[in-house]
Nucleic acid binder design. Structure first.
Length: 907
RNA sequence: GCAGGGGUAGCGAAGCGGUCAAACGCGUAAGGCUUAGGACCUUAUGGCUUAGGCCUUCGAGGGUUCGAAUCCCUCCUCCUGCACCA
């Protein structure tokens, strides 16, 4: 497009903005401030259009707020914390071909690769640098003076994080404990989803262990349903399997050999004692710890020695496999007399019915088991034969029985994976219980309540996200906050541990406010007490230095954070931690005020990830398109919807801006007077301003775009088509158009504004305000009538299949308008035709027509004089459109004309 | 499994109790313009209909209502998160 030589225009205005200093705001108490951030990026690769999507959404808002008179701060740092950067550098060192290839695609030179191999920091810095360059090339309105990196590579930031953790600890929100993780026994590391070649999404699942004693031995039955213990009739082992004796806390446990590595990694004080011939136990018995019942031990082939302990308790009336197994042993069944202990309304023989339904193959029994478990867990009530559990819902009974078993010292726990997990190196994963882990106590009820209060009052866009945050808070548990490897800040009281990335990135937004001042404070002076003074307004020891006072001023002006913008995948992790940490640490007036959650930029329906995005980098994008052309994508989405990368939609940009620049080119040719159509378009414009502003305010960019870009240009076109020709009107419309579109398309609008003769930049101009005096509903309604009439004429011509010689349009007379408008008024309160008739108390053919269909009652007030005027004004336009004579009459003879629906006669 | 959000024309989507055959955009087709292509302009894009009309649709099935894409229930299906991972 000739009008958008983006290579030139982008650079030109980026320079001008920087020169003006608008991106580097200073503390100014006379101006309202607005502080907006996007989560800190992890620089392990090049930034792609997906990143641009989210950042652009924030940038649009920053520019929008700037024009609305706010002092806007939009800073950006880099997150070096975590494992992957180190891991990738290690892979470069080992010359892993896949990693090298990926970097080369992104344009990394051989000499840089060498640096990466020597120092992970070089890798992070390389990409952080690239990120910043990309962002400068697309004119992001970021204050780069406040950039920083995390981890102890940045001592000031590290001090800040140490302060945060000391604070949490003082508040009693840090605890030490154990934690189950999926583990690779070969590499001796936790197996995250990305480290797995199989079993993504599988997690540890807690099994209860009920200890049944048999002489000097313990038979530890692993079960997901400890509440069924009162219904147990017997024990199962697999007579063909290998078993052994394990010494657990001085008890002799009989367990399958398969379970030994698991139990060793999960329980304390476990040692191997020796093999055992399991067959010897068949026919013996073990004692139910709660009711003392002796349960016979049977062998059953479906007992899988690889699951749990290889020992199971049998509850035939509530477990299809147990039912099936014991039913085969007729005599035993009679002797043991299994009883139901759980009631589910409408289910008399739930297990038997389930087996009938799913079949008695292994798979069928498994399906039946799933069905019964789910049904009974959600709807089951314990019957009165379950001692202290009687009458409880199954959900409650599960916790109660654990307590009872604990009391009888008959309870333990183990974890089992929910499915098979295999490490990238081929080793099957196991569950390991990590001891002495440091946790942040996100489960704390009081803390949650406080945070809930915040979520309830915050500005959240879209609104759906609020409920999701509240629900996440409900189930949130303690989070392990430190680990042994990777980059980061050491835990201040236990330096062996590094604070983990999701935990050191919860309140750093506060650090932006002071990032450009804090380095002036001598690092040794930066104590927790100083941070308390700066961030919390606490008393400081001695008289604070000037540097400290200045730092404090920055924080006090810019905080709290007004808006945080991010994609939806961070909603249930980062965002919730961010909110919790703020409510714990900061004074209430400094809690965050707003968040925006967006969807993703997708390619053929798939999210752009670092690997998939390699070909859609910002750099590549800019080879073909201008910044503003790419920015239209960021404006395409509303709420959490994903937006598909579709270069074709960029043509819409070209088309609309082409139209506007043509208009500017022909600006001098507008010489006419103001007419009805002028009132119409100014009224429409007024409406567009109002609605666009509201949509932008709520991050509904898609809606804003369809108004300010599409609807407005359509109206402009209608205006000129209809012979609109007034310079003042056109000028007003053009400037409004450019201002409204500036936040989304800053470069091109700035250029066109310049071409139009403005000497001021849009970036520093004032956002348009709707003027009530311009709104003219009558004119809008009547132009709608005109449009509808044109449609009708076309329709008729199509049906008649002849080109008209003359078209006579008859506008209804004033009497009809009176009746019509009284119907409109009446219909605004009821849709009931009989009611409307009653209130009108007149009779006429017109009324009969208007009240024919309750779904098609008239709603808009109309004006006879305006209607006639609009049609008279449009005569030339109609003449051109239909290429025939046009006659506008008041009231046709046939009396067919209705207000808002003139009669049409085609000759 | 738990929590949340979706399923509307060829596609992206708007509508969230009554002017919905469905805005807006993309795509497609025909015509115009052009040496040609692109861009641009016009028109069409569920079906029927020789006068502005009618009929049928909103994942599937049921219900509430004078009236449902919109509210309720059941089912199918897709997306997101579920933590030591950034």
């Amino acid at each position: 497009m000739a009008t958008y030589d983006y290579k030139k225009i982008d650079k030109k205005w980026q320079k001008n903005w920087i020169k003006s200093g608008v991106f580097e705001p200073e503390v100014d108490r006379s101006k309202k401030k607005f502080f907006i951030t996007v989560p800190i990026p992890y620089p392990s690769g090049s930034m792609h259009l997906g990143h641009m999507y989210t950042w652009t959404r924030a940038d649009i808002y920053a520019r929008f707020m700037r024009m609305r008179g706010y002092n806007v701060l939009f800073p950006q740092g880099f997150h070096f914390t975590g494992g992957p950067i180190v891991g990738m550098a290690e892979k470069v060192k080992q010359k892993d071909p896949k990693t090298l290839e990926a970097f080369r695609i992104q344009g990394v030179s051989e000499s840089d690769l060498k640096k990466f191999a020597d120092d992970p920091r070089a890798l992070a810095e390389y990409f952080a640098d690239g990120f910043r360059k990309d962002w400068e090339n697309i004119g992001m309105s970021i204050d780069w003076r406040r950039t920083f990196i995390t981890t102890d590579l940045s001592p000031y930031f590290s001090k800040f994080v140490s302060w945060q953790f000391n604070k949490l600890k003082t508040l009693g929100l840090i605890t030490e404990g154990k934690h189950p993780v999926v583990w690779c026994p070969k590499e001796n590391t936790p197996l995250g989803d990305h480290d797995r070649s199989e079993g993504e999404g599988e997690s540890p699942e807690k099994f209860s262990i009920v200890k049944f004693s048999s002489g000097k031995f313990i038979f530890p039955a692993a079960t997901l349903r400890p509440e069924t213990v009162y219904g147990a009739t017997n024990m199962w082992i697999n007579g063909e399997g290998e078993y052994c004796i394990l010494n657990v806390d001085s008890e002799k446990w009989v367990v399958s050999k398969d379970s030994v590595p698991k139990l060793k990694s999960q329980l304390q004080n476990v040692s191997f004692e020796g093999d055992v011939k399991i067959k010897d136990f068949i026919g013996k018995s073990a004692k139910n710890p709660l009711n003392g019942r002796e349960l016979p031990i049977f062998s059953e082939s479906f007992i899988d020695t690889a699951i749990g302990t290889g020992i199971a308790m049998s509850v035939p009336m509530h477990a299809p496999m147990d039912f099936y197994g014991l039913r085969k042993m007729r005599d035993e069944w009679e002797k043991l007399k299994p009883e139901r202990i759980i009631d589910v309304t409408g289910e008399e023989n739930i297990v038997e019915d389930a087996i009938k339904r799913f079949g008695d193959s292994i798979d069928g029994l498994k399906e039946a088991t799933k069905y019964v478990y789910k049904k009974e867990f959600n709807a089951g009530i314990m019957r009165n034969n379950s001692a202290e559990l009687s009458g409880l819902a199954v959900k409650e009974a599960r916790d109660t029985v654990r307590d009872s078993l604990e009391e009888h010292r008959a309870y333990s726990e183990m974890y089992e994976l929910t499915g098979r997990v295999v490490c990238r190196d081929g080793t099957p994963g196991i569950v390991k219980v990590l001891e002495k882990q440091w946790f942040i106590r996100y489960s704390d009820a009081e803390w949650k309540t406080k945070t809930r209060r915040l979520i309830e009052r915050m500005n959240i866009f879209p609104e759906d996200a609020r409920l999701q945050l509240l629900n996440t808070l409900e189930w949130l548990e303690d989070k392990a906050a430190a680990r042994k490897g990777g980059l980061g800040t050491p835990l201040p009281w236990d330096k062996d541990w590094i604070i983990e990335p999701l935990s050191d990135s919860t309140i750093y937004m506060a650090y932006y406010t002071i990032a450009n001042k804090i380095s002036k404070i001598a690092i040794e002076k930066l104590t927790d007490n100083v941070f308390d003074y700066i961030f919390l307004g606490r008393k400081i020891d001695g008289k604070p230095d000037k540097e400290i006072e200045e730092t404090k001023k920055e924080f006090e002006y810019w905080y709290p954070l007004d808006m945080r913008v991010s994609a939806k995948e961070l909603l249930q992790n980062h965002f919730i931690f961010f909110l919790l940490n703020h409510t714990a640490i900061f004074n209430e007036e400094n809690w965050p005020r707003g968040i925006q959650i967006n969807g993703w930029l997708t390619v053929s329906g798939e999210k752009l990830s670092k690997s998939k995005g390699a070909t859609l980098t910002i750099k590549r994008g800019l080879e073909t398109y201008g910044t503003d052309q790419l920015r239209i994508l960021a404006a395409a989405g509303n709420g959490m919807d994903d937006v598909e990368w579709n270069p074709a939609s960029i043509s819409a940009f070209d088309q609309r801006f082409g139209l506007i620049s043509d208009l500017i080119k022909n600006f001098d040719s507008f010489t006419g007077e103001k007419r009805l159509i002028d009132s119409y378009i100014l009224s429409k414009m007024n409406r567009v301003i109002k609605e666009t502003t509201e949509n932008l305010r709520c991050f509904r960019y898609g809606n804003a775009l369809s108004l300010m870009l599409f609807a407005l240009t359509n109206e402009i076109k209608l205006y000129t088509d209809m012979g609109g020709n007034n310079k003042e009107t056109v000028k007003t419309i053009l400037f409004t158009f450019l201002k409204l579109n500036h936040p989304v398309f800053p470069h091109i609008t700035e250029e066109l504004n310049h071409v139009l003769g403005s000497t001021d930049m849009l970036e520093t101009s004032v956002w348009p305000v709707p003027e009530e005096s311009l709104s003219n509903e009558g004119a809008e309604n009547e132009v709608e009538v005109l449009k509808a009439t044109i449609e009708d004429i076309k329709n008729i011509i199509k049906i008649v299949k002849k080109s008209p010689e003359k078209i006579i349009i008859g506008v209804a007379d004033s009497g009809k308008f009176e009746i019509y408008n009284s119907v409109v008024k009446a219909a605004s309160s009821t849709k009931n035709i009989i009611e409307i008739r009653k209130t009108l108390r007149t009779n006429s053919k017109i009324l009969d027509k208007l009240l024919k269909n309750p779904n098609k009652l008239p709603e808009k007030l109309l004006d006879e004089r305006l209607e006639y005027g609009v049609f008279m004004e449009a005569k030339d336009y109609l003449n051109k459109t239909f290429n025939c004579g046009i006659s506008i009459e008041k009231e046709s003879k046939e009396e067919k004309a209705l207000p808002g629906k003139p009669s049409i006669k085609i000759i």
